[in-house]
Design a protein around this nucleic acid. Structure first.
Lengths: 240, 240
DNA sequence: TCCAAACTGTGTCTGCCGGACGCAATTAAT
DNA sequence: ATTAATTGCGTCCGGCAGACACAGTTTGGA
């Protein structure tokens, strides 16, 4: 998977016919198909047909399908919102929420972003923006990375849950309810939890985990601040 | 995707030749291939060949490839460890760590578990076990689900990062370092974080996020306990 | 005891996929 | 005008999931 494509390291040629396509066009065509019919519908044939060209023409622009998917990913996640550097908590909330919304806009991104892959400028910009939000927090370098990873995982998980969308099929609660109806005795805790949360707002599934993560970060920072100028580390202060 | 397969709802026939295969054999053959060569190498042909049978014979046991993958998933994640019901924090730590280890044992599971899918007994047992650990915590039903989702997301994210394994290629830090070397000026915060955490223990990437999540949960419980019998809600108590 | 029903594994076929390769047409530099 | 570079295209290959018909095997009922 060549990096030059993602990082724009190619120079346009002088001789020969003018290219009728460009990389962003390829990516947009693929994104349109993936948004409409899912990632499985994105084939070289389909993308080429959408561009009015045969599939082999695409290989003049992209060495293979993997690179096309990488381009689609880069363009689909786009740029993170401008960070509000004053409040790290508000900034991270906005960052994670924007990531969630990007995932919901293009659910196939979840399928593309499994496993190690080359890092494109868009993805790296998300990381840069997130790291910048953590600058004044006293977290060490590795901890800043880990924080973003946890937040991104939360966004990803929520997007994965919300994927079924409007139809109650595919909703996790519905799936669980139908299965558990026939095996209630084996899963009492599931039954208890699902009946207790029968008609709850599933929109807040993301917020709950997010608030816990941010609370945990805040607790860590407080604890470190307190140990810097001591006076509050008693177990009574609830930071155990 | 039929549920009967996963939930064992098929009765063995009386007439006709004895089946030479069974569902667990199918799953194990697929798992062996996926473990050794990745999920992409799992085709009906390959699985059938591993069992000494033609590919069409598999369709006597499984309606399609999706169901075979579901069987593989169920068998690969297996059963969660027996919960220690005394300490919710220790229990959840053990739960999340076991999930991470399952992911690391079978990295292809990450690729199979994207998007909505039918819920098998193994997956539901993980959920049941996790919910049971949260029983005494005072969390509402939906909150218990969300807690497990956040923890599972953390395990998944860590497994995804650690996937490259021993070779330094594929390691996130290495990938970032090579890319950023040529574009340092555009990503100052990334450069700062990566140089600061140059030779850090990547094993603890999982633990950091996990501790933050658990800290956040603990803070929530303390806050609710405190509001039940008041006396500690001053901003000075660091629960903002 | 025999036969028909049920069930097995198999061979053949279709349509789709990603991609290798060579060819003709087009454009710019010489 | 010629040449080199580059384009889009047609053809071909191996592999994939799966539909379907078929022959062999086992058993229950007559």
């Amino acid at each position: 998977m060549s990096m030059e494509l993602l990082w724009g390291g190619r120079s346009q040629p002088s001789r020969g016919p003018r290219p009728t396509l460009d990389l962003t066009g390829l990516a947009d065509a693929g994104i349109a198909i993936a948004d409409a019919e899912g990632l499985a519908a994105v084939s070289m044939q389909r993308v080429a047909a959408a561009l009015g060209v045969t599939k082999m023409a695409l290989y003049r622009y992209v060495p293979g399908k993997a690179e096309l998917l990488a381009l689609m990913l880069e363009r689909a996640i786009g740029a993170p919102p401008e960070p509000d550097p004053g409040d790290w908590r508000a900034g991270l909330t906005q960052w994670a929420r924007a990531l969630l919304e990007a995932y919901l806009r293009h659910p196939w991104v979840l399928e593309v972003t499994v496993g190690p892959r080359p890092l494109g400028p868009a993805e790296l910009t998300w990381m840069e923006t997130g790291l910048r939000l953590l600058e004044g927090t006293g977290l060490r370098g590795a901890e800043r990375f880990d924080t973003l990873a946890t937040l991104a995982a939360q966004a990803r998980s929520a997007a994965d849950q919300l994927r079924g969308g409007a139809d109650p099929e595919g909703q996790l609660a519905t799936v669980i309810a139908t299965v558990v109806r026939d095996h209630a005795e084996r899963f009492p805790a599931v039954v208890a939890a699902v009946t207790e949360s029968a008609d709850d707002d599933r929109e807040q599934a993301f917020d709950f985990g997010l608030e816990r993560i941010l609370d945990g970060l805040q607790a860590l920072m407080h604890r470190r601040d307190a140990s810097a100028h001591p006076g509050c580390e008693q177990p009574g202060c609830a930071h155990y």
